[in-house]
């Protein structure tokens, strides 16, 4: 087999692979306006790739992730703000698609408990310490 045919055969193999997993942001997706592109990247980092677990669409290889990246860029070009874009996504996929859960009644504990842990920790130590000083 010549070198060239071999490469073509493997390329075909790999195309199958990339159908299922084209790696992260691709050159043809990138927006020309750098500011807009940065915004798109920032948003993408907060959006979960639905089929891969715990990866954002920015770093994911799934075709759906690519579609969503393109949609986000289209929306940015159309002049939508971040909030509208997130709403577009959660309307369709629910809060699950956000890697950073929105502040809601059901996520109050998630967002405030770390802070409360912090207060409790120092409170216990300070109170105990004060008591000890008296003794």
């Amino acid at each position: 087999m010549t070198n060239k045919t071999f490469i073509i055969i493997i390329s075909i193999f790999l195309i199958q692979f990339f159908l299922n997993s084209s790696y992260t942001v691709e050159p043809d997706e990138v927006l020309e306006n750098q500011k807009q592109e940065l915004r798109a990247r920032d948003i993408s980092k907060n959006v979960r790739c639905m089929i891969c677990q715990n990866q954002s669409i920015d770093e994911s290889n799934a075709p759906l992730a690519k579609d969503l990246r393109i949609i986000i860029r289209d929306k940015i070009k159309e002049g939508n703000n971040d909030k509208e874009i997130y709403k577009f996504l959660t309307d369709r996929y629910g809060d699950f698609i956000l890697l950073k859960p929105p502040l809601k009644l059901s996520t109050l504990a998630l967002w405030f408990l770390p802070f409360i842990f912090f207060i409790i920790g120092f409170f216990i130590v300070f109170v105990n310490n004060k008591k000890s000083k008296k003794i």
Binding site: I51, L64, D67, L68, R92
Partner: peptide, 8 residues
């Protein structure tokens, strides 16, 4: 599909 929230 995206409008329907389809993911797979």
């Amino acid at each position: 599909a995206i409008d329907w929230g389809v993911y797979g």
